[in-house]
Design a protein around this nucleic acid. Sequence first.
DNA 1: AACCGAATGGCAATCGGTTGCCATTAATTG
DNA 2: CAATTAATGGCAACCGATTGCCATTCGGTT
Lengths: 328, 328
Amino acid sequence: MTIADIAALTGVAASTVSRALSRPDRVNRVTRERIQAAARELNYVPNTQARALSSGRTETVALLVSDATNPFFFGLIRGAQQQLRAAGHALLLIDTEDSAELENHLLHKVRRSIDGVILAASRLPEQTLSDIAAELPVVTVNRNVPRVRSVVIDSPDGVRQAVEHLVSLGHRAIAYVAGPSSSWADQARWRAMRTAMARHGLTAARVGPFGVSRSSGSVAADALLNTGATAGVTFNDLLAIGILRRLAERGVDVPGEISVVGCDDIFGADFCSPPLTTLTAPIEQAGRVAVSMLLDHLEHLGETASRQTVLLPTHLTIRQSSGPAPRR
Amino acid sequence: MTIADIAALTGVAASTVSRALSRPDRVNRVTRERIQAAARELNYVPNTQARALSSGRTETVALLVSDATNPFFFGLIRGAQQQLRAAGHALLLIDTEDSAELENHLLHKVRRSIDGVILAASRLPEQTLSDIAAELPVVTVNRNVPRVRSVVIDSPDGVRQAVEHLVSLGHRAIAYVAGPSSSWADQARWRAMRTAMARHGLTAARVGPFGVSRSSGSVAADALLNTGATAGVTFNDLLAIGILRRLAERGVDVPGEISVVGCDDIFGADFCSPPLTTLTAPIEQAGRVAVSMLLDHLEHLGETASRQTVLLPTHLTIRQSSGPAPRR
DNA sequence: AACCGAATGGCAATCGGTTGCCATTAATTG
DNA sequence: CAATTAATGGCAACCGATTGCCATTCGGTT
């Protein structure tokens, strides 16, 4: 089933068929309908490759995540997938395995096969990022770089909420359990933490950096206890869940002896033990918005973007891992 | 950077450049090295579309999952992704939203843009499946259809293990909490359940079908209690975790009053409350194996496959959601 | 010296659409 | 009714590789 078959069947030229299908207004109604009917009849599906080759558009968007195992990204993938399908585009999923080099390399490799790319938690240096954005439509998630459009989840504000929450419960010694130092989000959260603490005349302790996995949680838990803090705010839920587990192993009561607040509200945060107080992030929405921005950008290439950055609000979801500070 | 640029730079014909890069033995060593050097120099990346158009190979594999939110598929995606990258192929992720029509439609649409496809938990009727397999390399996961190669996780054997486990703990009334009736795996598990029970002179109760989400777990929990069973084996962990939660809400002690055994050992099964006794499935491995089979098949098109189906073993992981049957 | 076959590399067709340009036709207007 | 303009659809040149086929070259044989 090629465009030529339809052309032969309907007695028009191939170019007319092409137009009838992709720019319907360029061809007379009756001709168009005849062609469309024939196409439907023959169950015609345009060849993506051929189309891409001549038009340059692939109707495919790549989503780069640093680690496909991290549940945080699943919401993102889902949201992106949904929105992309609605627009009839395909999703190329790429796992960069937390490596900036690999990220750069793979990006370079697929660059010609996609219309645009969504970079989730990119590890790339700013300069590289803007270079890439200059030659390929890019939307970043949770990473803000000048001249690159982005959707960022306002976790820093969430961190502020978390601090208010903990302080109101009587906590004075609160530690931040840091994630990977290469993470832009980590830095933003730590900054927010210090600011929020300072507003109460307190200073935040900091342990880490740690990897974002539950196993890193074990060592993070021990480090957290060493700070003497009565509460910890963690870089993300994966880490927090790992910490919870380690604390349970060590017989430390949560929240009796120490409170733990996570970040993101991933799958599992509501049913771990104890259920995790955490910053609920609109992850799926972030995926959808990122795609919308990208597609919107694609449609108006050349025009200057209306909005370069979208900030998505978070809120604190209080569960059972946080409670009043212990008396000393 | 096209092949023509390199040809111009090195003073050979485009065809020679093409050969030097894709079939190195077809061109003289010194020429080849000169070309390869030039390609590296110019940072040449072949245009996937153009290549696909003429050669028919896209170096892309699609993975169809019924629901990208389901943690079960996380592992699968991950495994597939890993193995594909190792082979330099790309991953097109497609969410079929649990609909056979959509699955069929999307499959048809991308058919020409991929070298092969992995169908995870396909909802397609057997006939359709074999038709597709006839015109496109296919590997199914957890679905066995004649003449279609597949990797299936031996959950039925796991169910047997679960029954042994529960019976040895004194349970006599055990119910199966069924998943979607369109699921091949569900049918296989239920069959295994009955067989295993029969071996002990017992008959299994059955409730469901239920959707595979935690919220379905609430209604499943109530239905499970109504059977009067002292233990339930569920279609999957998502359902089991939902049940656990509902039982906790109702103040039913697990495993004191009722034992719950899940299936798959997804992310979260080890830290829900109580930690779930479940059938640990090698999900990531399934993803890797599926890709290997597919790629292997691609390389030897035309030859008859050595092995059509791979059965992956599961084992029962005993945690705290199962225990001795209550005395009546 | 004449011959042969393997190795090498060029030519040109092909994959399946897209799109700029032009010719034709039909509609609009003074 | 002639003239101007708009709508329509065909022609053919791409897009960037791949690959069958053929011409040339060269080392080795007899």
